[in-house]
Design a binder for these strands. Structure first.
Lengths: 407, 407
DNA sequence: GTAATATGTTTACACATTAAACAAATTATT
DNA sequence: AATAATTTGTTTAATGTGTAAACATATTAC
């Protein structure tokens, strides 16, 4: 039950109904294509006349295109299939990580074009921007276009999406860097979007065409990697907060006297379950103390740890089980707080899900408040789905399909 | 940017625009009354013609009434003032607490009628229902009506608003009690709403006529009492979650090895800052171990502790400061997670806010991730505003003013 | 070739916002 | 006291929606 904000509301004008239905039609074509006008009329429980008018408008704006005629097995005129017109342009998605930066090129509805490429991440902001400029232009020329619809960047740290400032990215050693401002000079006239890793993963779940995240399905995305990023989806919308920093469940404590975290505080969830924390427990020393520049040089990764665990290294398995328990304890807090329909988990450690699931589940049950909460559905997002890159792309492509602001 | 749910959306029909504007007019009359048609036209940036039509419809439905003519100092026809028509019925709000139950009667827009009354809370469900029936009928007959618009009940524990079941209320020793089902037999034909204390407080903030909680102002309400109730407002809407149990920040841990909590787990925030926890620290023993039936018999309350602290009892002041620190540490987690515009705090301990504010602030700064988060605005809700009772009333009166579901 | 059937378009209508003209009520001015 | 100016609230006509029914078009089955 939403309250109408008496200081900032949107009145319904003559065109409001049309705007609403237009966006619904666009969304339905996106999620159901190929789809005919008659199909849309049935899906929306309206008559074909209305759909014709709406679709013709979308056709004129070249947002939608007509495709081949379908073939029915029953008697009757063949339907004309409709598609989102993706021939318009391309979108660039960038996943910046401490070691390397990954790049994906898609058409304007997020369908991948070519291969994902990666290059070393520069730690000096100016160099970073220059290398991005070079790489993006190279990728665009390979696709055969000069410009793109927009660039979405996912950053491993705290960012303010609105101002475009990287507030704090300990992994790169950045504090209050006006990244978008710098990039706008590099890519003049191109829209650039910035988002935090965890929230971007959540975005990718919202806007994936398959899309089981919407409406009354509140959900949480937890990305476990060098850090712990969390994105929360409420009412089909990403929770952003006043300063665009909402979702930092990574720094709720398990024990306020626990190990020191990269954020400066003690005992954060992240300090227990980040890849470095798990590796530290395995090696019995503090790997996290290294300087950011040296991260790339660490040869032994969490994947190696998982391989060893599978190979029979009981110490490695113990380290994973320990991480699993802490993961579950923290998830319990998230579940108690948000009561989501789904919790999505991404990150390298999910490769070992079969080894750790029971430990995670047990820890969740231990600290959730009801039986139902303890049974909250958990879904693993495999790395091959590239949730961060998909989230970066969604930053560019999603706005066209968003619900109109009403009332 | 909200996604349209392709499996469950609401198409705009011929009447949608009117429905939207009707609700806006209703909301504006509620928040701005007394207000004229011309005022509404200016507020909505539309012409008076449209307002006339909308208002006449509301007048016919007797949702709105015309009042006295206003007097302008400028030349021109005097405006006819409009009001929400509250002469329709009455709403009952009930705040159930471990010791006593409080009851408020209001008109249909939530304006208090008569005095707040209280009576002992019965712990046996059937007795509880019977006593409620008696008290409500008594109150209604005193106001001179036979029935009411609805009854809103606020419960100190975990409830499922939809099914109307009290899932777990340790303070009363209730588990899975189908309260609404039982009450519907007692009050045939009357709408009965059930909500958790913390969330009800949040509701009262959303729907208070003053209403600084709306739209882009996400906010959190923390009610510190026998337990810790938390309500989260996102997008002008209360966060409910899949099982209607969202917002249980009271059970995020400060230390997973900390003192035992009433929920069974260890080291929950609640176990550090509930009134009983604070009293326990003062007395150096475990007050929380008492049976629920005995709670009413505890003579020494948190208010007494505050009085002693003000009187110079340094042990009492230490206990308060300790609670303040834990309060702040937990608030930091809430702020990191939600990044709200405002945090509202209610409960007995707020009477000592002048004594504890600096400790709370310091603890918040210690664990929040950015300067901005550390400065998140905190507002004290004094007990005289009866946030729980107002929330109970809002359960009944708010639906009439809610935004229509669109797209 | 004809009937049946489904798709997509057109037409007429109902209902909403909206702009402009109008009636009503009040104050200031002559 | 009469008139002009001004504001409120209503009416009228215009315009843009959704909606129902009729219609044209295309295809299959007989």
């Amino acid at each position: 039950m939403r309250k109408i904000n008496p200081k900032d509301f949107t009145r319904a004008t003559r065109g409001t109904s049309r705007e609403i239905n237009r966006q619904i039609v666009l969304t339905l074509i996106r999620t159901h294509q190929p789809v005919s006008r008659a199909d849309l009329a049935r899906l929306m429980e309206t008559n074909r006349a209305n759909i014709t008018l709406l679709v013709n408008e979308l056709l004129e704006e070249k947002l939608v295109r007509e495709g081949a005629r379908g073939s029915l097995r029953v008697p009757g005129r063949k339907p004309t299939f409709l598609y989102i017109n993706s021939a318009k342009g391309v979108a660039i998605g960038l996943d910046v990580r401490a070691s390397r930066t990954y790049m994906m090129v898609t058409d304007s509805i997020g369908k991948q074009i070519g291969e994902i490429v990666s290059f070393a991440t520069r730690f000096e902001p100016a160099e970073f921007v220059a290398s991005l400029g070079w790489q993006v232009r190279k990728a665009l020329s390979e696709v055969g276009v000069k410009s793109c619809d927009g660039i979405g960047i996912v950053f491993p740290g705290m960012v303010d999406r609105e101002s475009g400032v990287v507030i704090n990215a300990p992994k790169l050693g950045w504090k209050y860097v006006p990244l978008i401002e710098m990039l706008e000079k590099e890519f003049e006239g191109t829209e650039i979007h910035l988002e935090n890793s965890g929230r971007a993963c959540a975005l990718s779940q919202i806007w994936s065409t398959r899309g089981d995240v919407h409406g009354r399905n509140d959900s949480v995305f937890v990305s476990v990697s060098d850090g712990v990023g969390v994105g929360v989806v409420i009412n089909g919308e990403l929770l952003r907060g006043k300063h665009n920093t909402a979702g930092e469940f990574g720094h709720i404590p398990l024990s306020i006297d626990g190990p020191q975290c990269s954020c400066g505080a003690h005992g954060c969830w992240e300090a227990y379950i980040s890849n470095l924390a798990t590796l530290s427990r395995y090696f019995g020393r503090d790997v996290s103390r290294r300087q950011p520049e040296a991260i790339e040089a660490i040869e032994f990764t969490i994947e190696d740890l998982i391989t060893r665990a599978r190979g029979g290294d009981s110490k490695a398995l113990t380290a994973l089980h320990s991480a699993a328990r802490y993961l579950g304890l923290g998830l319990a807090s998230v579940i108690n707080a948000i009561d989501p329909s789904f919790v999505y988990i991404g990150g390298e450690i999910t490769e070992a899900w079969d080894l750790i699931e029971s430990q995670v589940r047990e820890a969740i049950k231990e600290r959730t408040l009801t039986r139902e909460l303890g049974r909250t559905s958990i879904r693993i997002v495999p790395a091959v789905e590239h949730p961060r890159l998909r989230g970066a792309i969604a930053l560019v492509t999603a706005p066209a399909f968003a619900a109109p602001k009403v009332a």
